[in-house]
Amino acid sequence: MEPIVSNGSIFIGILTFLLVGLLVSMFKILREYERGVIFLLGRFYQVKGPGLIIVIPIVQQMVRVDLRTVVMDVPTQDVISRDNVSVRVNAVIYFRVIDAQKAIINVEDYLQATSQLAQTTLRSVLGQHELDEMLANREMLNTDIQAILDTRTDGWGIKVSNVEIKHVDLNETMIRAIARQAEAERTRRAKVIHASGEMEASAKLVEAAEKLSTEPNAILLRYLQTLTEIAGEKNSTILFPLPMDLLKGVLGKQDKKP
């Protein structure tokens, strides 16, 4: 009888241990940023959490979902712009799960799916723009990419909050070409500014000549002022202005001689 009692005690002890283990495994603790997607016999039951929840072993299964914002680095992509320039672009996207049920049921791996979608969208959007737009209008491109990703990931329960293009890498030949273009543009601007200055100066000179012509003594005062400036520079050269009427008279007489 003693062996039978001993075997019965061992069986009861094992059974008690298993029951305690099952009871302990029923209780799950989810953090504030976590949700648990519960499946009952393979079918979706409900989303639980955060805090202490009960999951019936064997009958129910739980999948944890993190609701915090994910910062994902998009690998460098080779992009050909609309003006046939080859560039290498990489970006970073910020997104988070807003519907745990869709994120688990509607897509196999929402992280991998979002990464692949971001890569293809980055190449597609940037390929529709020229190089100058990529370099100058990054904010507009970021907004366009973010809007497309947010729309396409809505069925996965994901919200894309921001997209940032980090680097647009060019080859050495294109960098030199851009440098020459920038130099030519600055030269053109300098010439335009110089020409505009000459035009304004000529207009002011005409205006000044008209004012001086109304008063003959003004020419004499201007001449004396010029002599003062020359003397201040310790220059021994003295300029004597000759009236144009006198020069015309002398030249006219020379033309009349046989």
Rank of each mutant, 00 (worst) to 15 (best):
L15I: 08
Q116Y: 05
R68T: 12
L212R: 08
M1T: 12
K257I: 13
T121Y: 02
E215P: 00
I158F: 03
T173K: 09
A201D: 05
A195H: 04
F240N: 04
M26Y: 05
I53H: 03
V74K: 01
D144Y: 01
L15E: 03
Q101D: 01
D150F: 01
D144F: 01
N142Y: 08
L23V: 12
V92C: 03
R186S: 11
R189E: 15
I193T: 12
V206E: 13
R82D: 04
M26S: 14
P75N: 09
G51P: 02
I14K: 07
K234V: 04
K257L: 15
L18F: 15
V37N: 05
R176A: 12
A195R: 08
Q112C: 00
I145T: 01
D78R: 09
E185L: 11
M1A: 12
R186G: 00
L212I: 09
Q225A: 15
R123Y: 06
E130V: 08
I93R: 02
D78G: 05
R31N: 10
I98V: 15
L246C: 03
P50G: 04
I193E: 12
G8S: 14
I53V: 15
S202I: 14
T214D: 13
I148Q: 09
V37S: 05
V192M: 09
P243S: 14
K253Y: 07
K234R: 14
G127Q: 08
G36C: 03
